[in-house]
Computed example of a mutant assay.
Amino acid sequence: MQARTLRGWGWVHKWSSLVCTLFILLLCLTGLPLIFSHEIEHLTGSEIAAPPMPEGTPHIALDRVAAEAVKAYPGLVPLYFFAEEDLPDLWYVKLDTRVDTDESESRLILSDARTGAVVDVPAFDEGFMSVMYRLHVDLYAGLPGKLFLGFMGLLLVVAIVSGVVLYAPFMRKLRFAEVRRERAPRTRWLDLHNLLGIVTLVWALAVGFTGVINTWADLIFKGWQAEQVAALQAGDTRVLLTADASDAPAADGSLQTAVDRVLAAAPGMAISMIAYPGTLRATPEHVAVILRGDTPLTSRLTQALLVDPASGEVLEASARPWYVTALQLSEPLHFGDYGGLPLKVLWALLDVLTLVVLGSGLYLWLKRGSTEVRG
């Protein structure tokens, strides 16, 4: 029975590995430059930076930034403001012909938060890094491509788990980390495949599983947004700041005042995104403000608040569910973005070792004989 069980696990390991190997190889190869995306942008001079101005120059009101963007692009209206943690003096502003579009033809510009001037029109769909990103994220196939890569990631997890099951009985005959150098090349590669597979086990599981979660991002966020709107319509909300709160700026209908009231209701948080009423990420009557924490960990966790610009009332439509928290933590973990350059170097090293594991597994299958590959 034990031999039959091991043969079953061997079959699972072999076919889950074979089906996903070429795609996981592609993801590992494209993931390497993405780990160092910020460093590459700095070295190539393509890094975005705010125009030089005296330190401490104050930011102008968001309404003025929006007005300057509309002046530069007549006929368009602002949909969103996006803030990057490492670009405190710049706003990404998304524009379209009206607020209730599907945003497929929208335009994204970069505006100076201190003057409102349009600094740049980022070309995210051009260059080497763009190609690497699209191949890594969706194979240039949009949501179907993301879900397909997510399925390949699930197969990788199955291959890793089945490989661990096969590893224990296989290694009973050998010392840990032993590579039988005196044996045939296929045997040496088998030992190396098993050794590196165990060394990279935890990392490969973590990166593989977080990659799967990331492919579901669009569906997860759309579901969360739908929950928030439904909760608001049903009156299932929590009031964080009342309309007549005396310790916050009085509501005057402006975007800046609405955002100031949100920040007063959630001290210690920073702005990640602002959505105008009527857009996909807000409600018809409310400005949606997505806030992030101010620590390396909590900066990846966001809180969505709604504010009525007319009355100034700040609402939390629904608390962040666990699956949204998992998604928000998974992306930086996937790319090793928590610990600066040392962690990125470690991620790159483990990525290269995983490439060797995948390549050796493919070699073992191509050179298979009467004995099946185990481990």
Score class of each variant (00 low, 15 high):
residue 71 K to V: 00
residue 71 K to I: 00
residue 71 K to P: 00
residue 72 A to S: 10
residue 73 Y to F: 14
residue 73 Y to Q: 12
residue 73 Y to P: 01
residue 73 Y to C: 02
residue 74 P to K: 11
residue 74 P to L: 10
residue 74 P to G: 03
residue 75 G to L: 03
residue 76 L to A: 06
residue 77 V to S: 07
residue 77 V to T: 12
residue 77 V to H: 01
residue 77 V to N: 04
residue 78 P to L: 10
residue 78 P to F: 02
residue 78 P to A: 06
residue 79 L to R: 12
residue 79 L to T: 04
residue 79 L to W: 01
residue 79 L to Y: 00
residue 80 Y to S: 04
residue 81 F to A: 02
residue 82 F to H: 11
residue 83 A to R: 14
residue 83 A to C: 05
residue 84 E to W: 14
residue 84 E to R: 15
residue 84 E to M: 15
residue 85 E to W: 03
residue 86 D to I: 07
residue 86 D to N: 13
residue 87 L to V: 09
residue 87 L to W: 13
residue 88 P to I: 10
residue 88 P to E: 14
residue 88 P to T: 12
residue 89 D to I: 09
residue 90 L to H: 13
residue 90 L to P: 02
residue 91 W to Y: 09
residue 91 W to E: 00
residue 91 W to P: 00
residue 92 Y to F: 12
residue 92 Y to E: 02
residue 93 V to I: 07
residue 96 D to V: 01
residue 96 D to M: 07
residue 97 T to Y: 04
residue 97 T to K: 13
residue 98 R to N: 13
residue 98 R to C: 09
residue 99 V to T: 07
residue 99 V to W: 00
residue 99 V to E: 03
residue 99 V to F: 03
residue 100 D to L: 03
residue 101 T to F: 10
residue 102 D to E: 11
residue 102 D to Q: 10
residue 103 E to V: 06
residue 104 S to D: 09
residue 105 E to L: 13
residue 106 S to M: 13
residue 106 S to Y: 03
residue 108 L to A: 01
residue 109 I to S: 00
residue 110 L to T: 04
residue 111 S to T: 14
residue 112 D to E: 01
residue 112 D to R: 06
residue 113 A to M: 06
residue 113 A to L: 09
residue 113 A to E: 04
residue 113 A to W: 08
residue 113 A to R: 15
residue 113 A to T: 08
residue 114 R to S: 11
residue 114 R to L: 06
residue 114 R to K: 06
residue 115 T to V: 06
residue 115 T to H: 08
residue 116 G to V: 05
residue 116 G to W: 01
residue 117 A to I: 02
residue 117 A to S: 11
residue 117 A to C: 01
residue 117 A to T: 08
residue 118 V to L: 02
residue 119 V to N: 04
residue 120 D to A: 14
residue 120 D to G: 12
residue 120 D to N: 15
residue 120 D to Y: 10
residue 120 D to K: 14
residue 121 V to D: 14
residue 121 V to I: 13
residue 122 P to Y: 06
residue 123 A to V: 01
residue 123 A to D: 15
residue 123 A to T: 06
residue 124 F to A: 10
residue 124 F to D: 11
residue 125 D to M: 09
residue 125 D to I: 05
residue 126 E to K: 15
residue 126 E to S: 08
residue 126 E to I: 08
residue 126 E to W: 05
residue 126 E to H: 02
residue 127 G to S: 06
residue 127 G to C: 07
residue 128 F to G: 09
residue 129 M to W: 11
residue 129 M to S: 05
residue 129 M to T: 06
residue 130 S to M: 09
residue 131 V to E: 12
residue 132 M to A: 14
residue 132 M to C: 15
residue 132 M to E: 08
residue 133 Y to L: 15
residue 134 R to I: 06
residue 134 R to H: 14
residue 134 R to E: 11
residue 135 L to R: 11
residue 135 L to A: 11
residue 135 L to P: 08
residue 136 H to W: 04
residue 136 H to A: 05
residue 136 H to F: 04
residue 136 H to S: 07
residue 137 V to M: 14
residue 139 L to H: 04
residue 139 L to M: 12
residue 139 L to W: 07
residue 139 L to S: 08
residue 140 Y to H: 05
residue 140 Y to G: 01
residue 141 A to H: 08
